[in-house]
C-alpha cells in the first residue's frame, strides 16, 4: 500500500500509549494503545458502551486522560487544551448532530473557516466577496449541500445535518478527522451518499471513524480497531478483524462460555 505524503515529520498522525479514562471506580476506556499513520482510514468498532466516544473525547481533550499519553504528529498533546489540539489539525464530529440551529449553513461554515482571528475587524459585518465566505461555499460543495447554503440549520434534514458536520470538520486544513458515527440515523438511501462523501475526503487527511454500519466502515476504511468494555480487543485489516473469534462473538453473538 502506498504511503501517503507525510507533512514534515515521519511520526504517526496519532499515537496513544496506554490511555484510559476513569469515572469513579469505572474505567470507560482502559489502557488503549494504538497508532494511526498519516492518511490512514481507520474504523473503530465496538458494541454500545465499548468506550468509542469516550476514546474520542480523550483524543480531542474534552476528557482529561486518567492515564497514558497521546501524541499528535509526534508532539505530546496529552495535557494540551482543546483549542491547542484543534490548532494542530485535530477535528471531530459529534454522534448527535450538535449544530448552530439559529444560523444559516453559510454562516455556520463561515464561522468554521474564519474562527475569530483578525483583531478588531471581527466586529464588522462580513462582505459577500469575503474570501472566507467563498471558502465556506466551497465546503458546502465538498460536503454535498451547496443548494442549502442559505437555509437555516434548524431546517435541514438529519442527513443534511450530518453532511454539514463533516463540512465543518473539513474547514481550516484538518489533519486528523475523528468522525463519530456519521451514518447514525441515516436512511438506507442516504448511506451510500455518505460513504461516497467519506471516500472523497482528501487523501492526506487521516480519518478515524466510529461506525456501527459494517458496510460503511469496511468500504471506507483500510484498517479496523475493535474496542470492547473500554479495552482494545482486536486490530487489523477488515478481513483479519472479521476472522477474529472474539470479535465474531460480540458482533454476531456467540454463546457466552464461562
Amino acid at each position: 500500500m502506498p504511503v501517503s505524503p507525510v507533512p514534515k515529520t515521519t511520526a504517526n498522525a496519532l499515537e496513544t500509549q496506554g490511555i484510559g479514562k476513569r469515572f469513579g471506580g469505572f474505567w470507560a476506556v482502559k489502557d488503549v494503545t494504538f497508532s494511526v499513520r498519516p492518511g490512514e482510514r481507520r474504523a473503530i468498532l465496538g458494541p454500545n458502551g465499548a468506550g468509542k466516544t469516550s476514546l474520542f473525547n480523550i483524543l480531542t481533550g474534552d476528557y482529561a486522560a486518567s492515564s497514558g499519553s497521546i501524541r499528535l504528529f509526534g508532539e505530546d498533546v496529552t495535557k494540551s487544551s482543546v483549542p491547542k489540539r484543534i490548532k494542530n489539525g485535530l477535528r471531530r464530529t459529534y454522534q448527535h448532530a450538535y449544530l448552530f440551529d439559529g444560523l444559516s449553513v453559510h454562516d455556520t461554515l463561515f464561522l468554521a473557516v474564519a474562527g475569530l482571528r483578525g483583531g478588531w475587524r471581527q466586529i464588522l459585518p462580513v462582505r459577500k466577496s469575503d474570501p472566507r465566505r467563498i471558502e465556506a461555499e466551497r465546503l458546502a460543495e465538498v460536503c454535498g449541500i451547496p443548494e442549502f447554503l442559505d437555509r437555516m440549520v434548524s431546517d435541514l434534514s438529519h442527513g443534511q445535518r450530518r453532511q454539514l458536520e463533516i463540512g465543518i470538520a473539513l474547514a481550516e486544513d484538518p489533519k486528523v478527522l475523528l468522525l463519530d458515527e456519521p451514518a447514525a440515523g441515516l436512511s438506507p438511501a442516504e448511506r451510500p451518499q455518505l460513504s461516497n462523501l467519506l471516500l472523497s475526503l482528501p487523501t492526506d487527511v487521516t480519518v478515524i471513524l466510529i461506525e456501527h454500519d459494517m458496510d460503511i466502515a469496511f468500504r471506507t476504511s483500510e484498517s479496523v480497531t475493535v474496542l470492547f468494555n473500554g479495552q482494545l480487543m482486536a486490530e487489523g485489516t477488515p478481513d483479519e478483524v472479521m476472522a477474529n473469534k472474539d470479535v465474531h462473538e460480540i458482533y454476531v453473538g456467540g454463546t457466552h462460555s464461562e
Binding site: 474534552d62 484543534i86 444560523l103 468554521a112 462580513v126
Partner: peptide, 25 residues
C-alpha cells in the same frame, strides 16, 4: 454586529457553546 464574525460567534454560543469550542473558538 450580528452579521460580523463576532456576532455570528455570539449566536453560536446561544445555540451550541460546546460546538463552538470544538471549532477552536
Amino acid at each position: 454586529f450580528v452579521r460580523s464574525p463576532l456576532g455570528l460567534a455570539v449566536q453560536a454560543v446561544r445555540d451550541a457553546p460546546g460546538r463552538l469550542l470544538a471549532l477552536g473558538i
